[in-house]
Design a protein around this nucleic acid. Structure first.
Lengths: 170, 170
DNA sequence: GGTATTTGTCTGACGGAGCAACTATACGCC
DNA sequence: GGCGTATAGTTGCTCCGTCAGACAAATACC
């Protein structure tokens, strides 16, 4: 016998499985559209985060903090996007260790190209699937979980964090 | 001016951002515990999926279908876990192209070690955060989204089957 | 001012995962 | 039985992201 200690069909698994499937389903849809515009999910996230920051720029470390990437991950994405002309590095005048990542006009344009389709997809597959009440309840629940699981996010004021690439660990 | 076409602070972003943060927050917590038992999230998933299958085995392709991995991804995880003695390959008698991945006793034991802690974490950070009503509503919403975004999963009866690979375009 | 510590970024080495190409087997059809 | 196609799995190549370590600049302490 092996029905030993643990029940592998615990309903909690199906609950979390639903969560995972819904989430990865959405991100896959999004990723497909990003790729039509030659962007990866990460690149989109970077672009978006920079675009909504004052002067379209962020220090490397701050960018890392706002995305799901490590600082060295950020270095590399920015390298790539710099090469493609979407982002450019700019020295920080007040701290010579730091550098800013700044969205170029080309970067802004690329972002503007992607946005409408992206918003549509979000509407179509996410927001529009639920009644307004349902949506509110969902967001409440998600916020509760988020606040529990990720206390930092609460502190820093604004939430808003689209698209962290699936983590798997650490 | 750049207030051009699109609004980067669209509330839908914050909605999806919440989704993302909650999900990755959870998976990170889980991953941390898995690593205490020298498993990655993927390895845990593989182990679990095999353990709940009849005779603790699954053909490679089926395993791929049930996880978020490609078939070549499965080949490699199974290689690794085979090397560690958690899984073993077994020839399929009826089709010599196929092989089964089978959980070894060591693999089952490892799984039994992880499960209690994992269930606790799920309870603590996910299920237990919500009132029963809230949980039901959440699951309803997630199911709706999942069914929309990942139609295959609905058909096959059992839940859990990520990875639709968007069909809408090349 | 001089030394120790911390902070911001980059780099080398590494591992995981996907795609495309390949091999081997099974199956359909004549 | 023999040929063409489909299917199962593996392997080579490449990309992407992490970690650990290096280095430079800022800051703290004296």
């Amino acid at each position: 016998m092996d029905g030993v200690g643990t029940n592998f069909d615990d309903p909690r698994f199906t609950a979390f499985g639903l969560f995972a499937e819904a989430y990865t389903g959405l991100t896959n849809r999004f990723a497909a559209q990003f790729e039509e515009h030659r962007l990866s999910s990460v690149e989109f996230e970077v672009l978006l985060r920079l675009a909504r920051s004052p002067r379209h720029r962020l220090r490397m470390t701050d960018l890392a903090g706002q995305t799901s990437l490590s600082t060295s991950g950020v270095t590399r994405v920015v390298d790539r996007m710099d090469r493609e002309g979407l982002i450019r590095r700019e020295a920080c005048p007040s701290d010579r260790r730091s550098s800013y990542a700044v969205v170029t006009p080309a970067g802004m344009q690329r972002l503007e190209e992607v946005m409408p389709g992206h918003l549509e997809l979000m509407q179509q597959w996410f927001i529009g699937q639920l009644s307004p009440t349902q949506l509110d309840q969902l967001l409440d629940a998600l916020r509760t979980i988020r606040d529990a699981v990720n206390p930092c996010a609460t502190a820093g004021s604004a939430e808003t964090s689209p698209e962290p690439a699936a983590p798997s660990h650490s």
